[in-house]
């Protein structure tokens, strides 16, 4: 993949990721399931880091601005290929779950893990919201 197409893919995936706020907040039962989670965490789409703020299960902010001195619980990093494959409508085997991807090394997860495991299904569902959804 040349630099131009890589940049295009990066932007396309970032656009899809930014849909998470709208898609999550439109899902009232998902918000209900995440109602005990209030936390900030970081997700890397390839080289681009995003801050996500969750408040009582609702996505309050998704963006590339990182306020100084603001703590983050954990960081999930995925390659462009990982997110691209993960968000296929029916992902191929090995690309269909965050733990499949951390096991294969296509994603990494670090930081404070208690909030991640305590809200695991909610977070998995939030992060897979762009699955099969077209770009912005």
């Amino acid at each position: 993949m040349n630099m131009g197409s890589q940049k295009q893919l990066q932007e396309a995936l970032c656009n899809r990721f930014e849909l998470i706020e709208e898609l999550t907040n439109a899902d009232s039962h998902l918000i209900h399931r995440g109602r005990f989670l209030t936390a900030d965490f970081v997700v890397h789409i390839g080289d681009v880091p995003y801050l996500i703020s969750i408040g009582d299960g609702r996505v309050l902010f998704v963006g590339r601005k990182f306020p100084i001195f603001q703590g983050r619980k954990f960081t999930l990093k995925g390659s462009l290929n990982a997110w691209s494959m993960f968000w296929e409508l029916i992902p191929k085997a090995g690309w269909h779950d965050i733990f499949a991807l951390t096991k294969s090394g296509e994603m990494t997860l670090e930081g404070e893990m208690q909030p991640f495991f305590a809200h695991l299904q909610y977070l998995k569902d939030v992060l897979s919201k762009p699955r099969g959804v077209g770009n912005k």
């Binding site: 965050i98 499949a100 695991l120």
Partner: peptide, 10 residues
């Protein structure tokens, strides 16, 4: 919840 969430990916 965590047991089910972990294996959901399988």
């Amino acid at each position: 919840e965590v047991c089910a969430a972990l294996v959901s990916g399988l």
